[in-house]
């Protein structure tokens, strides 16, 4: 294994473009090193992106935020303005692993690992987050939901890497939330995850995005679930429609972490609970 420490995205792209065999990018390393230790993936080339300028910064961008690709979960949690504006994203990221994992793990890594159960991904999808993808042919902006294509696989081409995460402006009367179900209180991989982002006008929800994790090969953006609550005051009927839409959207598997039946059911439960939190955070009361 060759270990590289490029000082710029250009250098990183050049190394990745010409590398032979398996290439991995290293930011927080909390997935890459696990795979290395467990002999699942031993990359031929490991490109440490932490020496690139600006990758550790959280900055304002068009009233929203630009998150560097090596910013750790702990740094996001400690950023009061980011946390106030996007508690769903920040808390979703904070749910990834332990305090120790939070010291290293990154949003970008959580996304690029390609796990359908990644906690931050449904939260980012619900929030309408996009990423810059830099590669040999320049930089393109891609919605988060278009990055994962299958468990462990992303839409990034050879030589490409994510160079920044863009969180939109919060705007008024809106809020997001993320909940996940795990059997313990900490340290588990999500059995189901749900992100909700909404805006209200008075008591009426005017915009909403609902995303589910761990219930399909990739995190889902569930439009039927959003439609179930748009135009409502999140009354019981709306919540029931939301839960049904969430459950119906699931295409899960039976595995060691949960059954199909359980995941479908809990997706509905979580959608209800998450929507309520977002609604209350947006300043409305049920």
């Amino acid at each position: 294994m060759q270990y590289h420490t490029p000082g710029s995205f250009e250098d990183a792209i050049a190394i990745a473009s010409f590398a032979e065999g398996v290439t991995r990018f290293l930011a927080g390393g909390t997935d890459v090193l696990v795979q290395l230790r467990a002999d699942i993936v031993t990359p031929d080339n490991l490109i440490d992106v932490k020496h690139i300028d600006g990758v550790t910064k959280i900055e304002r961008e068009d009233s929203g935020w630009r998150i560097g690709i090596a910013v750790s979960g702990a740094e996001m949690s400690e950023h009061p303005d980011l946390h106030n504006e996007w508690p769903g994203i920040v808390e979703a990221m904070d749910l990834v692993g332990s305090t120790q994992i939070q010291g290293r793990a990154t949003l970008t890594g959580n996304l690029c690992n390609g796990s359908p159960a990644a906690d931050s991904v449904p939260a980012m999808i619900a929030a309408g987050v996009s990423v810059s993808v830099a590669g040999p042919n320049g930089t393109r902006k891609v919605a988060v939901e278009d990055i994962p294509v299958a468990p462990g696989r992303t839409s990034l081409e050879k030589g490409e890497l994510i160079s920044a995460v863009h969180i939109p402006a919060r705007g008024s009367d809106g809020a997001d939330a993320y909940l996940r179900f795990i059997p313990r209180t900490e340290m588990d991989i999500a059995v189901v995850g749900c992100g909700v982002n909404l805006r209200r006008d008075g008591k009426t929800i005017t915009e909403a995005r609902v995303s589910l994790g761990a219930v399909a090969p990739t995190a889902l953006l569930v439009e039927e679930a959003a439609e179930a609550i748009i135009g409502t005051a999140l009354d019981d009927a709306a919540l029931e429609t939301l839960a049904a839409a969430a459950s119906a959207a699931c295409n899960p598997i039976d595995d060691k972490r949960g059954t199909i039946k359980f995941r479908k059911h809990v997706a509905g439960v979580l959608a209800r609970r998450t929507a309520k939190i977002a609604y209350e955070r947006a300043g409305a009361s049920i």
């Binding site: 059997p183 313990r184 209180t185 900490e186 340290m187 991989i189 595995d255 972490r257």
Partner: peptide
């Protein structure tokens, strides 16, 4: 009682040979 178990697949292989999925109680539990 609540969470720990050996999970074998149809192939007879142990599926949860890590602390992530062999869930012993953590402090917050």
């Amino acid at each position: 009682a609540l969470n720990e178990e050996y999970i074998y697949g149809e192939d007879g292989r142990l599926q949860n040979a890590v602390f992530l999925d062999y869930r012993i109680p953590v402090a917050s539990d």
